[in-house]
Design a protein around this nucleic acid. Sequence first.
DNA 1: CCAGACGTTGTT
DNA 2: GTCTGG
DNA 3: CCAGACGTTGTT
DNA 4: GTCTGG
Length: 219
Amino acid sequence: MCGRIVARVLKKAWTKGGRIVIPPMFRPSYNIAPTQGIVVFRAGEREWDASIMRWGLVPSWWKDAAELPGQTFNARAETVAEKPTFRAAFKRRRCLIPCDGFYEWKATGAKAKQPYFIHPADPEGIFHFAGLWELWETADGAMESCTIITTEPNTLMAGIHNRMPVILAPEAHEEWLDPGVQGGERLARLLLPCDAVEMAAYKVGPVKGDGENLIKRII
DNA sequence: CCAGACGTTGTT
DNA sequence: GTCTGG
DNA sequence: CCAGACGTTGTT
DNA sequence: GTCTGG
């Protein structure tokens, strides 16, 4: 479905002066920000279902369409089962968010930050973040949104930041996605920092100041 | 039993 | 969706 | 050898 | 990147 739309867009672009111009929404992103759409895998009828959802979970009961919750792009593993915003999704709507790496900014001074790019140690590897998704319905329509669960840092991440996304090993994927799996303890066992040997990091930059122009530099 | 509240975390 | 307070 | 093409499908 | 047609 999505693929067909992309193909149509490409056809239009190709016939337009012979130059390939990919619309912004289909360009690969090197730096996704909260509120943008990200790819989400969830349990489908037979196989995983891949969707694009808003990064920043909106609870099903959210009323104020003019102002969506602003800080729900991450959920803390330690509290996700209890927080009103996340607990319903934690029970039945868990997902995986694929990612080939992410940036983390290490505070190196009062206002100085040093960004790092963290990626799978295996060059062929893909991270699968543990996430939650939610359906939010209004009179005007519906939206699916998601969040990424964070936990304590492993030894690699500890040198960079005080939190890290929960990265699930392939063996844990099915259990995490299975809505039949209930019980906080069994799920909590999965929400731990992954082994540092699965990750590698390198400095991006160096960049001083608030990192405003970092994005341009990365791209 | 029902009405009403319930926000969350640390990216960019 | 789920919990709390009245 | 080089220029130019190269996309997919039949639903919501 | 790779295949096809001229």
